[in-house]
Simulated scan of single mutants.
Amino acid sequence: MKPIKHLYLYFHDGQRLALRFPGTASDPVEIARGLSRQLESPFLSIAVDGDLMLIPRESIKYLQISPAPPVLPDATILGAQLIV
Score class of each variant (00 low, 15 high):
Met1Gln: 07
Met1Tyr: 09
Met1Phe: 05
Lys2Asp: 00
Pro3Gln: 06
Leu7Thr: 07
Leu9Trp: 00
Tyr10Trp: 00
Phe11Thr: 00
Phe11Gln: 05
His12Lys: 14
His12Ala: 04
His12Pro: 00
Asp13His: 11
Leu19Lys: 07
Pro22Arg: 09
Pro22Ser: 08
Gly23Leu: 05
Ala25Asp: 10
Ala25Glu: 11
Asp27His: 11
Asp27Tyr: 06
Pro28Thr: 04
Val29Asp: 03
Val29Gln: 10
Val29Lys: 04
Ile31Pro: 02
Ala32Thr: 04
Ala32Ile: 01
Arg33Asp: 15
Leu35Trp: 12
Ser36Pro: 06
Gln38Ala: 15
Leu39His: 15
Leu39Val: 10
Glu40Ser: 09
Ser41Leu: 04
Leu44Asp: 01
Leu44Tyr: 03
Ser45Lys: 13
Ile46Gln: 05
Ile46Tyr: 01
Ile46Cys: 03
Ile46Pro: 03
Ile46Phe: 03
Ala47Glu: 06
Ala47Ile: 06
Ala47Asn: 06
Val48Arg: 07
Val48Glu: 07
Asp49Thr: 11
Asp49Phe: 12
Gly50Leu: 10
Asp51Pro: 05
Leu52Asn: 07
Leu52Ile: 09
Leu52Gln: 08
Met53Asn: 10
Leu54Tyr: 13
Ile55Asn: 07
Ile55Glu: 02
Ile55Val: 12
Pro56Thr: 09
Pro56Tyr: 03
Pro56Gln: 08
Ser59Glu: 09
Tyr62His: 13
Leu63Gly: 10
Leu63Thr: 01
Gln64Ile: 08
Ile65Lys: 04
Ile65Ser: 12
Ser66Lys: 15
Ser66Cys: 13
Ser66His: 14
Pro67Gly: 08
Ala68Tyr: 01
Ala68Thr: 02
Ala68Arg: 11
Val71Met: 05
Leu72Val: 09
Leu72Asn: 00
Leu72Cys: 01
Asp74Ala: 11
Asp74Leu: 09
Ala75Arg: 10
Ala75Ser: 14
Ile77Leu: 12
Ala80Gly: 11
Ala80His: 09
Ala80Met: 06
Gln81Asn: 14
Gln81Ala: 12
Leu82Phe: 14
Ile83Gly: 01
Val84Ile: 06
